[in-house]
């Protein structure tokens, strides 16, 4: 069992280095001599998938420990820039990645799009994006300052609608909570959030969502304490095996 997992992981890593047009020597990430702790700072929306990926990675590389710090991407970017010990950064927005690494050094590993979330049974009878412009419905959106709010702004612009929100939430989970508790008739959240809470809420797809696809970049950091293992983890996240996990959670993969 164990040997097979290693074999699969190795194949995956090897494949991914080929796919991600290996700018490094493929052997560097394929060796089994990885060890130590790798500190991964990841966006809050990755909590479920990355916890799973971290466990699989640890199983494939005995002696390696993956430690996660999940929080909002902008908070993480700030922590890293203030000297927090991070080896890998997976952000929910390219902007926050650029704040840490400078432009264009990260690889996109997942994409997320917005979906309408309504309480079970859809009490507000929401059918599409146009209902967000109805002042009589209770609506929660993310604040423009956070990624899901910026994405929401884009889709409303594309649809030529002026939303009438009752609250601009501080993050996507807060918006989701308002739906789960039935306090609002609808909110715009990510597809992955709807899937994660699907026993409490319902999701409604809408065509304009394609106007605001959210890219998730990942990168090893230049002052990583454990660069070899960090790189191996990043390669693993880009592997086909990891893609299956991400897709199952509702992400689209490049």
């Amino acid at each position: 069992m164990f040997r097979r997992t290693v074999a699969v992981a190795l194949a995956a890593v090897a494949a991914s280095t080929l796919v991600s047009c290996g700018d490094d020597t493929p052997a560097a990430s394929g060796t089994t001599s990885l060890s130590g702790t790798v500190n991964v700072f990841a966006a809050a929306s990755l909590t479920g998938t990355f916890t799973r990926l971290g466990k699989d990675f640890e199983a494939a590389h005995p002696g390696v420990k993956v430690v996660f710090n999940f929080a909002g991407s902008s908070a993480l970017a700030q922590q890293i820039n203030q000297g927090a010990p991070a080896d890998v950064f997976a952000s929910a927005a390219p902007k926050n990645m650029d704040q840490v690494t400078g432009k264009g050094t990260a690889t996109t590993f997942a994409k997320n799009k917005l979906e309408i979330a309504v309480p079970k049974g859809n009490p507000g009878k929401v059918t599409g994006l146009k209902d967000f412009a109805d002042p009589n419905r209770k609506i929660a959106l993310c604040a423009e300052q956070v990624p899901c709010g910026a994405a929401a702004k884009k889709v409303f612009e594309a649809a030529h609608l002026t939303p009438q929100p009752d609250s601009l939430e501080q993050d996507v989970k807060a918006a989701l909570t308002k739906v789960t508790l039935g306090e609002v008739d609808a909110a715009l959240v990510y597809k992955t959030d709807v899937l994660a809470a699907k026993d409490k809420i319902e999701g409604i797809d809408f065509p304009e969502a394609t106007q605001a696809i959210n890219d998730y970049p990942i990168a090893t950091l230049t002052d990583a304490k454990n660069p070899a293992t960090a790189k191996a983890f990043v390669d693993y996240v880009l592997s086909p095996e990891a893609k299956t996990v991400l897709t199952k959670a509702g992400f689209e993969t490049p």
Partner: peptide, 20 residues
């Protein structure tokens, strides 16, 4: 919740400003 002019108090404004 958080809506400017209705429920956005200073601490909420500070938190959101911190994001950007």
């Amino acid at each position: 919740g958080n809506l400017p002019g209705r429920t956005t108090t200073m601490p909420l404004a500070v938190y959101l400003a911190l994001e950007t």
